[in-house]
Amino acid sequence: MLEAGRADVHYWHDLWRYRELLGFLAWRDIMVRYKQTVLGAAWALLQPAITLVVFTFVFGRLAKMPAGGLTPEQYPLLVMAGLLPWQLFANALSSASGSLVSNTHLISKVYFPRLVVPLSALAVALIDFLIVGLLYLGLCAWWSFWPDWRVLLLPLFTLLGLLAALGAGLWLTALTVRFRDFRFIVPFLLQVGVFLSPVGFSTSNVPSWRFLFSFNPMVAVIDGFRWCLLHGAQPFYVPGLLIGLGVTAALLVSGLWYFRRTERSFADVI
């Protein structure tokens, strides 16, 4: 059953068997996160709320960027529709890439498919996403601007965002096991990424760069979110979506490949 240098054929079966562990790890991270904090789960709302205010002020008021089909007063809706997937991506990516190293004690002592660890990080990010979603609903109520039927496609774009985070996260977490440098690289990437993704502004503001812009997989996700949530105010840009899908798929496949390839030495290197 175990052989030297042979990929385990039971891997995917095992992964399914350990699905409960995935749930438990996610549950642990959620339970533990706000222990000994005063504000508790309010932190999950506070950060996006403040980011929302800042971005609205900088991009909407100072830079007076066009609100992409909305009225200038509705600029926060535009920002929030971008912030929602971005937060999902950023949380998922940063916790997934740190996940293996922060679970060193498990990796070196117990067997389970290692993929469970970054996946559980995604689950945690997804829970946060749902909480931030409440904030968005609050904004909707304030402007009485409720999403229409297009919102039904939202889960697809959520999935796309998660997969992009997973693909990049698999690379980064496997690399972090070996090179702790990536612990410093990830926050920097995310810091830069928030400006290289159309979070605070609409993609229609960068028509000439749009094609190049689309190689950031989050561009397709954020555009998709805006299309779903803002009555199609942000029209689809088909080449961009396809590129985004392609980049995500490439990240995911290569990430899985690299993760699986290095996985068996994790316990020796970590």
């Binding site: 059953m1 175990l2 052989e3 030297a4 240098g5 642990r28 339970m31 533990v32 222990k35 000994q36 004690h105 498990l106 990796i107 070196s108 002592k109 117990v110 067997y111 068996r264 030495s265 316990a267 020796d268």
Partner: peptide
């Protein structure tokens, strides 16, 4: 937990290993 470099192992049945007491205990829980 780690892979062998050479050779093979055949295990029949569910394996539980206890390499350390309290693996994965979380102090806050």
């Amino acid at each position: 937990v780690t892979e062998p470099t050479t050779g093979r192992i055949r295990l029949r049945g569910r394996v539980a290993s206890l390499l350390e007491v309290g693996t994965g205990f979380h102090p806050e829980l």
